[in-house]
Design a protein around this nucleic acid. Structure first.
Lengths: 130, 130
DNA sequence: ATGGGTCTTCCCAATATGGGAAGGTCAAGG
DNA sequence: CCTTGACCTTCCCATATTGGGAAGACCCAT
């Protein structure tokens, strides 16, 4: 399989496959002509990576997840710990985004939103309340 | 005021002040010796930018907010619209992060988390359920 | 005049992804 | 046999934001 086929089979763009190789996340056999060559096992790895990315795991986490995945004797506790840490990070980020959204929405509620120039949002940004 | 003082007064790092200038968000007078020079008005602008960044406005939005801020005859509706658009973007991002966190947490709940290698998280990433 | 702090510009780093150029390779068809 | 088009290669650049650090110029006080 060339990189195009592997990309189609895995859902990972060829660009990204090369990138993952460049950062040492994966490797690839080379044909005599220099083309990368992939087998079903490689596609499985790529799909694994894509699923992990879908779950917003950063690449460095994926590196560790791949190691655990390949390690037949890994303890599931290790994986669970990483997953829960990641969940906590995601929820913390979500919560702070939501908090910012809430305060901005609150600010906007007090803005007339008409043709007049008075605007509490700009006043806040200006630092009137500081 | 030199850049260091302006930075201390505004809470924006000198690095960032130079960056904002490089991307055309702000300008600065130069002294004969090449040093940037800032007045109280410039500090107000920098504080405005910092507050907007605190509300997670992207710099391109801040560029527009600054224009509105400087325009004494702006309509508050314009600002309100930008703010509400931004709120929507933030909430959408927060929601999708939370959704990912939820599904990963769900996955982790079914993981024993012991010394055994069986792990539904890895199984999911592997694509067993596809 | 010398030293310490501040300023200048320029390069590099991180996140993950993609665009595009310039050139090599291969298979099909005139 | 040669062209054409699809695919591959590497390399550079871009996104958005912030920071680290180097090399050199400058300013003020001792």
């Amino acid at each position: 399989m060339n990189i195009g086929e592997a990309s189609a089979a895995s859902g990972v763009s060829a660009k990204m496959i090369r990138h993952y190789e460049a950062i040492g996340l994966i490797e690839a056999m080379r044909r005599p002509n220099g083309y990368r060559s992939y087998g079903p096992q490689d596609v499985a790895v790529l799909r694994f990576i894509r699923h992990a990315r879908d779950l917003a795991f950063p690449l460095e986490d994926i590196r560790r997840l791949l190691a655990l995945w390949r390690d037949r004797s890994r303890a599931s506790a290790d994986v669970k710990q990483m997953a829960l840490d990641h969940v906590a990070a995601l929820e913390s980020k979500a919560a702070s985004l939501q908090a910012v959204a809430d305060s901005l929405r609150h600010l906007a509620q007090h803005c007339q939103g008409d043709d007049r120039p008075d605007c509490p949002i700009l006043a806040e940004l200006e630092g009137v309340r500081e």
